[in-house]
């Protein structure tokens, strides 16, 4: 199987779907002639032309809304946000329009759109460019939210998201774009709402999404080699729909849950997972549900401190050891 980057995996997904379905188009700032601010759409404008790969001015509210309107008419826009942090200037279009139109029309109108781009801290760009808004988005019934951790998942989930008939908020990560993994050639799909056990274990469940999955895997390796503890890593892959069964099955197996989450802890994704476990797996637990999340402050700029703000394998290991 070819080894390619996360970035290239996404690029292949776009090329597959642009080829397969005439109604698919890419849109966003610098996605076409510039080849994408992070080169995720590299070569696609040259290959598919200006109708299918569309550069926009810096007007997130207008082009997000344009995507919603075009999707209502049956097109399948894939709208890039250079950073998910920029979604906030177009939030009305995402929440009120993409998120609510289907419901408010009594199911008459669908919005088959993908909104995508990087949503991560850890790159020394300060608070305004480091947001991880998956909790805001997943808090809106009507929206779907996915956050792949690997190149394989990125391609399969992107193809599924483009074919999905609802709006999917696709959370990428600039720190993952260069990661390399095995990715099949051609088209394949990974259903939304199906978690993946990235490492089998028996003593504790690490539950994570996005880059935090890699942190959890690193921590699991340390626990195995240095402490003889077998950690299972559950990669949620999609936040909404959420694979509750996979979470509960893992907790029933290991009896300990540690949630690793690069988003903020207060009303975060990890809060939702903790509630789920408390409500439905309380009797399975041998220890309280624990969390390792971003430290609860705006993303700090200072380089060494920012490294401390996001979950690290060391923090995960230290927290895990308190549960035994």
């Amino acid at each position: 199987m070819p080894l390619i980057t996360y970035r290239k995996a996404l690029n292949e997904a776009f090329a597959e779907e642009l080829t397969r379905d005439e109604s698919v188009f890419l849109m966003g700032e610098e996605v076409a002639e510039y080849n994408g601010a992070y080169k995720v759409t590299e070569g696609l404008w040259e290959r598919f032309g200006s109708k299918r790969v569309v550069d926009t001015p810096i007007s997130e509210a207008a082009f997000l809304g344009l995507g919603v309107g075009a999707a209502m008419m049956g097109l399948r826009p894939v709208v890039e946000l250079m950073f998910w942090s920029f979604a906030y200037v177009g939030f009305d279009q995402i929440i009120n329009n993409a998120g609510c139109v289907r419901y408010m029309s009594g199911g008459l109108i669908n919005v088959p759109m993908v909104i995508r781009g990087p949503a991560n801290g850890g790159t020394n760009v300060g608070a305004t460019h480091s947001h991880t808004p998956e909790n805001f988005l997943a808090n809106t019934p009507g929206l779907k939210v996915v956050a792949p951790a690997t190149p394989y998942d990125a391609k399969g989930l992107m193809i599924s998201s483009i074919r999905d008939n609802d709006t999917v908020c696709f959370m990428e990560n600039t720190l993952l774009y260069g990661d390399i993994g095995e990715v099949p050639e051609g088209s394949y799909t990974i259903p939304l709402g199906v978690a993946d056990i990235k490492r089998e274990g028996t003593d504790i469940s690490f539950i994570a999404h996005g880059r935090a999955v890699l942190t959890a895997l690193a921590a699991a390796e340390i626990l195995a080699t240095e402490h003889g503890i077998s950690a299972e890593v559950v990669d949620l892959r999609s936040i909404r729909p959420l694979d509750e069964e996979a979470i509960l099955n893992s907790v029933a197996k290991t009896h300990r849950a540690l949630l690793v989450d690069e988003s903020k802890p207060f009303c975060g994704i990890s809060s939702q997972i903790a509630t789920l476990i408390a409500e439905q797996a309380f009797d399975e637990l041998d220890a309280p549900v624990a969390r390792v999340t971003a430290l609860d402050a705006p993303a700090i700029y200072s380089m060494p401190l920012e490294k401390l703000q996001l979950p690290t394998a060391e923090r995960v290991v230290a927290k895990a050891l308190t549960l035994f």
Partner: peptide, 9 residues
């Protein structure tokens, strides 16, 4: 912006 999208489509 939605009207813009209708016209675009």
């Amino acid at each position: 912006p939605l009207g813009l999208g209708l016209a675009f489509a």
